[in-house]
């Protein structure tokens, strides 16, 4: 099953990216020890190791959400770009948001709206770029078609 391979690679990518971000924040904030997430998150555990284990699990799940969503949407290449973008948005927004909240990445009440706006803007940019790439491909196809026809005339 190809989807299993995407689950595994999603987990690997998620853990790698999550660790790098946590390491980066730990260095920037001059923390005494490695902080796997925000101090609020770490404080919910009896020790740093337990918090790191929980964070690693969340990073893996987040990676799986994006990797599997992308795989399931983009194999359906007969869907239009708009259809693919909307389905991808719904899946990642519905699955990633609770994980980000559990991971204590942002206080829900204060940031949910700005987080949602950022999410929508990212998808608008992705949709717009995909449309431009597709338009360029169509131009190229027409060019090839015209060259081909003029050869035969």
């Amino acid at each position: 099953m190809k989807v299993i391979a995407h689950v595994i690679s999603g987990a690997v990518i998620g853990i790698t990216v999550g660790f790098m971000i946590a390491l980066g924040f730990s260095v920037l904030n001059h923390t005494a020890t490695f902080m796997p997430s925000t101090p609020e998150f770490v404080a919910r555990f009896s020790n740093n190791l337990a918090a790191t284990v929980a964070s690693t699990g969340l990073w893996a799940l987040i990676g799986i959400v994006f990797e599997v969503a992308s795989y399931l949407v983009f194999v359906r290449s007969q869907w239009s770009i708009t259809h693919q973008t909307i389905v991808h948005f719904i899946v990642t927004y519905a699955c990633f948001t609770p994980l980000a909240i559990i991971a204590d990445w942002f206080p829900v009440q204060d940031y949910l709206i700005s987080y949602t706006i950022a999410f929508v803007i990212i998808y608008l940019i992705a949709w717009f770029s995909s449309m431009q790439i597709a338009k360029a491909k169509v131009r190229r196809l027409n060019q090839l078609l015209n060259n081909n026809q003029s050869q035969h005339d």
Binding site: S80, N142, L145
Partner: peptide
């Protein structure tokens, strides 16, 4: 060839 408004070839 053309691209539809919703992005289908």
């Amino acid at each position: 060839f053309s691209l539809t408004g919703s992005g289908s070839y």
